[in-house]
Design a protein around this nucleic acid. Structure first.
Length: 903
RNA sequence: GGUCCUUUAGCUCAGCUGGUUUAGAGCGCCUGCUUGACAGGCAGGAGGUCAGCAGUUCAAAUCUGCUAAGGGCCACCA
């Protein structure tokens, strides 16, 4: 059968993936083997695959496939995340496109739309992962909002409430006016922005709002206008919040503002009279040293407000427009008002000046175009002190290892300065908070019960004094949903039903999981919190190793983004280059924690490698075998390659164990391409005589098939499709067999001397080849080789075949003129009658001598240093002595040749 | 502001506990190659005072300090 000269992935990928699925090769059940478990970082249920997922999931698949081949019971659990904010936003937008407003829908109606959307778009990303070859146990596909996971979340909420870790509190929180929900501090990202610093006039007033005429003292800075009225100047980046001002604050130690002490000032435009308060919080150096205090809209101002018992005026509606609490601009958006009020202040003569200013503005991590607003509201919190303590220990003590280790530092820093976690969100798409409010009297503090169901809540309520006869409909279920991460943090436990059923066989077998592969940007959101949940509910770590990938960037180092259009379509790449090619290309440019600069040429390299493997297979399959005796070249080649393969297997095994995955991949890549193809196959390849290919002996053929088999196994975790295809094509396989469950080579024992001798022979070959090229001697013109000095004779067939050398003679002295080169201290001569460029040779030799003499000087300097000889370990001194002897020999050789030429 | 990291060939990066013939790889580049596997290939080659300075040491790309450039994370400076 004719085999195509090019590997065509489309002929193999789908076929084998179906085969794997049909035979349930990805499925795992607890058994007597050692488990190896990875849980997928669940992608957003309605998301689509991007390069980051490709990277991340390729790595996971490599780890899982390798574990399987090491004989472990490997399980990779897939699933998706409901991603409450992101998904709800998408649904809201889709409805808006249809002319439906969320607020016109009931919660139930909205959720119906959301589930429709989820069912329609959900899981596309998991389908895409199959194209990549991901060996997930699809039978176990989970969703953070499916029934078992949802129940687990509610149970944990109730439990943590019972334990006293969950509380409800009025706090200054981060409000996203677009999504109209609070966010946790972790969900706010700060961006530096070019903005303005506005200097506003706050006229000084007495109780009757009449102008005050203070007396200035030394160092005081008094502002006075044309009418002789005194005013203070306040610098602010947010003039639109002045309607919420309830005080002005100065530092009591600020000499230039002493004159304001005890006075009152008038809020510009608004006309409200507010007190001047004093607090050391105010930075004397900043602006004018006068701070406007808006307790409802700034965390620091809120704290000042508490200390100084100020009023708080909330001038914003939840959507970021001005509320009716403000006397001005009611209904306008805060950003519109900022522009307008600036004009109005200027027109009213209340704007002292405007300066350019760079400051940091918080945005929702999920929504880059709407600034987060600090807002005072009542929310649910998880008290974090206890969790920080239990999560820090395993990482510091090494029960969990981070790759790279540097992330331990930021992990620690975050935990040591942790804030309570705001876990409620004003969203419908998510796990509804299992709290039920009891009817209370006007002005009375809110009362609630926390329970798994409304029925249970009612029972609990009946046990409370005064609520014995409460009716079900009088209980008001909390409207809010939980933060998405409040379900993700249970993932390694809830996937095995460990919350509801802590003693079940699966959780006992699969927990703790083995390795986690994830991006460093969710170290706090997810990695840390899983450790907390694991310690709290399983009293054990959730995983032992965390491998942090970098961010995939383009080759210029820019983040991949839709706007830049620099993000390739992963499925398009797979179609163009094949999944194996894409996988290899990605892996070659990875190292833990470093960003990945993605370049399509890397994927091309992956594709080319597939082609190389494919063609090596074509070569081997094209051979005829007969009972001819094994040639010396073949025997040496087989012995050498089995050693080389063992060495590579040991090295890649070690690299994988240390999560040096790119090194492991590169090592196997080079073993196949350089060692196997360029040296081994070329060495054993039968020649053509009169256009007829000679047969190969059986021993070499069998060994070659064995090597090929081993190499395919070595490469399988990286390139699952082509290796499965060729493994089946290599030999007859029984029905239902797969390379997936063959052992991956890990052997360590090999003959190091043999490998070194072969390397010497290769060195000789390279020299002869270079000489041919330099002298324009055809590759097939046989040459003689003379050797003066030691040379591993067993390697003679290698040199003969690979360098096309007819004979290798050991000599005392070289015969006549020729080209001489050295490998180690051994000299080799290729006799070349009448082809020697004497002047050129002399120049070359002299340059060589100079180089070695320079080297020798360094070595001699070391050895003549008494301290070196006295202090350095004997082994090191010995090496230096050997260097000295070798270099001396080399120089002597060169000088002898030089003398011969000059004769 | 605090803290952590990075700087080695044109590019991306190894170099693990200081010592192994005066630094390695992949890609790119240059030169040569049309007939039995593969031009998505083969063979050969060029290219680096290891960011700078100072120190520790018998010995520094490797350890320490400072400087410079770049990056990450954290933090309430209006």
């Amino acid at each position: 059968m004719e085999i195509s000269a090019k590997y065509d992935p489309s002929q193999t990928e789908d076929k084998w993936y179906q085969y794997w699925l049909e035979h349930k090769f990805f499925h795992s059940e607890p058994d007597g083997r050692e488990p190896y478990v990875v849980v997928i970082p669940p992608p957003n249920v309605t998301g689509v695959l991007h390069m980051g997922h490709m990277m991340n999931n390729t790595l996971q698949d490599v780890l899982v496939r390798r574990a399987r081949m090491l004989g472990k019971n490997a399980l990779w659990v897939p699933g998706t995340d409901h991603a409450s904010i992101a998904t709800e936003a998408k649904v809201v937008k889709k409805l808006a496109d249809q002319g439906i407003r969320k607020r016109d829908l009931t919660r139930e109606q909205f959720l119906e739309h959301a589930w429709d959307w989820t069912n329609e778009h959900g899981g596309i990303i998991l389908k895409q992962l199959r194209r990549l070859g991901a060996s997930c146990d699809w039978d176990r596909t989970a969703f953070t909002m499916d029934a078992p996971r949802s129940e687990s979340v509610l149970r944990v909420f109730c439990d943590l409430y019972e334990k006293g870790y969950i509380y409800r509190g009025l706090r200054m929180v981060n409000w996203d006016p677009k999504a109209q929900t609070v966010l946790s501090t972790e969900e706010v990202v700060y961006r530096e922005e070019q903005s303005k610093l506005y200097y506003l006039r706050y006229y000084v007033a007495d109780a009757d709002e009449n102008p005050v005429r203070p007396t200035g003292a030394e160092g005081e800075v008094l502002h006075v206008d044309e009418q002789g009225r005194y005013y203070a100047v306040v610098a602010t980046t947010r003039p639109e919040t002045i309607m919420g001002d309830t005080a002005m604050c100065i530092n009591p130690k600020d000499p230039k503002n002493q004159w304001l002490r005890g006075h009152r000032v008038v809020v510009p435009l608004v006309g409200r009279v507010i007190p001047v308060i004093e607090d050391r919080y105010v930075d004397i150096e900043f602006g004018t040293g006068c701070l406007k205090v808006t307790p409802a809209h700034d965390v620091n101002d809120y704290n000042l407000g508490k200390t100084h018992k100020l009023d708080s005026i909330d001038i914003f509606n939840p959507d970021g427009t001005i509320s009716d609490q403000s006397p001005l601009y009611v209904g306008l958006d805060r950003m519109v008002v900022r522009k307008q009020i600036s004009k109005d202040l200027t027109a009213a003569g209340l704007m002292e000046k405007v300066e350019d200013y760079v400051n940091k503005v918080g945005y929702s991590e999920r929504n880059a175009d709407t600034a987060v607003e600090p807002r005072l509201c009542k929310q649910w919190f998880l008290s974090m002190k206890h969790f920080a303590e239990i999560a820090l220990k395993p990482v510091l003590e090494g029960d969990i290892k981070f790759y790279p280790e540097k992330f331990v530092g930021s992990y620690r820093q975050w935990l040591e300065n942790i804030q309570d976690w705001c876990i409620s969100r004003q969203l419908w798409w998510g796990h509804r908070i299992p709290a039920y409010y009891l009817p209370t009297e006007e002005g009375e503090e809110e009362r609630f019960v926390v329970a798994m169901t409304a029925e249970e809540a009612l029972e609990k309520a009946h046990r409370l004094a005064g609520y014995e006869n409460l009716k079900a409909e009088e209980l008001r279920h909390d409207e809010d949903a939980l933060d998405t991460w409040f379900s993700s943090w249970l993932w390694p436990i809830s996937l095995f039903d460990g919350i509801r059923n802590p003693d079940n066989a699966e959780i006992k077998y699969y927990y703790p999981t083995s390795d986690l592969v994830t991006a460093p940007d969710i170290i706090f959101f997810w990695v840390a919190r899983m450790i907390m949940a694991g310690e709290e509910y399983m009293h054990d770590v959730p995983y032992h190793n965390v491998y942090f990938t970098g961010i995939v960037r383009d080759k210029l180092g820019r983040k991949m983004s839709k706007q830049l259009g620099n993000s390739p379509d992963p499925i398009g790449l797979i179609e163009k280059y094949g999944a194996d090619g894409v996988r290899l290309g990605m892996l070659l440019c990875t190292s833990a924690g470093n960003d990945i600069l993605f370049d399509e040429t890397q994927v091309e390299q992956g594709r080319n490698f597939c082609n190389k493997i494919w063609n090596a297979f074509r070569l081997v399959k094209g051979w005829t075998v007969s009972d001819v005796p094994q040639s010396d070249a073949c025997r040496v080649a087989v012995d050498w390659f089995s050693a080389k393969l063992a060495q590579t297997a040991a090295e890649t095994h070690r690299d994988y164990e240390n999560f040096r995955i790119n090194d492991a991949v590169m090592n196997s890549y080079k073993c196949f391409w350089d060692d196997f193809c360029s040296w081994y196959l070329e060495l054993v390849k039968p020649s053509f005589v009169d256009g007829v290919q000679q047969p190969l002996d059986r021993a070499t053929y069998t060994a070659t098939i064995g090597f090929f088999d081993a190499l395919l196994r070595l490469l399988h975790p990286v390139m699952p499709f082509i290796t499965e295809e060729l493994w089946h094509a290599l030999e007859d396989r029984a029905a239902g067999e797969t390379i997936m469950y063959q052992p991956i080579p890990t052997d360590g024992a090999f003959d190091a001397q043999l490998v070194a001798d072969f390397a010497t022979a290769c060195d000789v070959v390279v020299n002869v080849r270079a000489l041919r090229q330099a002298r324009n001697i055809a590759p097939k013109e046989p040459l003689k080789l003379e050797v003066k000095g030691s040379f591993p004779r067993a390697m003679a067939p290698v040199v003969q075949k690979m360098a096309f050398v007819s004979e290798i003679l050991s000599v005392e002295a070289f015969s006549g003129a020729g080209e001489v080169f050295m490998v180690g201290t051994t000299e080799f001569n290729v006799p070349l009658d009448g082809m020697i460029d004497v002047a050129g040779e002399i120049a070359r030799i002299e340059a060589e001598i100079q180089r070695f003499e320079g080297f020798l000087r360094g070595v001699k300097a070391k050895l003549s240093n008494e301290k070196f000889v006295a202090n350095a370990p004997e082994k090191v001194v010995e090496t230096e002595r050997k260097k000295l002897a070798d270099a001396t020999t080399k120089i002597e050789n060169l000088q002898a040749r030089l003398a011969a030429f000059k004769k």
